[in-house]
Design a protein around this nucleic acid. Sequence first.
DNA 1: CGCCAGGCTATCC
DNA 2: GGATAGCATGGC
Length: 282
Amino acid sequence: MNCVFIPDSIDLEVTIDSAQSFRWKRTANGTYAGTIASVPLLAAQSGEGLTVYGDALDVSAIRRYFDLDRNYEALLLKYEDEPMVGARIGVCKGLRVLNQPVWETLVAFLFSQHNNVARITLLMDRLCREAGRKVRVREFDVFTVPEPEDILRFGEEGLRRIGAGYRAPYVLRAAQAVADGFDLDSLAHMPYDSALVKLMTLHGVGEKVADCVLLFGCGHACAFPVDRWIARVLAEHFPDEKNVRRLKRLAVERLGEHAGIANQFMFHCARKGMIIGGEGAG
DNA sequence: CGCCAGGCTATCC
DNA sequence: GGATAGCATGGC
């Protein structure tokens, strides 16, 4: 068991509680157990930074996963006076946009549609428990996300049994596509627009899910997912526009190449009912 | 209990 | 092009 301290600033709890990953379990002593690319880890807040426990720690992979090489302070400065975002930066300071394995991100956000966070987490947990591998970190059992081939074996029946409902065929067909050569890794290297179009050729992947995969799994910082919460925020700032696609375009025009980073601050605050404007309430 | 959830597809006009 | 029903399931 190794241990490494990473001093870069992050708020682990806020980041993990912001509905971009559904894979980390809070343990009794306040650390989080999970995996990065099937490697089990234990992550803990240490001051402003992180302490990570595990075997064969790959520090650069951990830094990349938690987006610690991005200068958030500098990036967020340009949003200070942006009414959609500015006031939200301070209240979720330390929020980071994760870079998760793309297959894991795709499965999670296929599960996410018309679903709540508690149940998305439950579905991911059951899926990994039943179709993934058990690995161990310290005294904790952790389960890996099943590969596409594992899900093909698990079948639509398995997916329905764990409660995926009508999303079961979406996940199964995505697994089939990847097994047949759909190159998820290429999405990170393509221009955003082409990556979006390519992802949306998958059955069950619309624009919102595709944007989540591109933002949380492919490093496309401009990807701007519009769910119900973001739609509410946008509706307040662009009261004359009702069309969701045009709302998204208006927002991205204003927010620029890191629109997706800003999106995560907007989303988290809105979902947590953190005031600002009045859309929060909760 | 009824409403809602990080939506999408099919189908209508 | 834009609008709307139906979808499985469970949290709250």
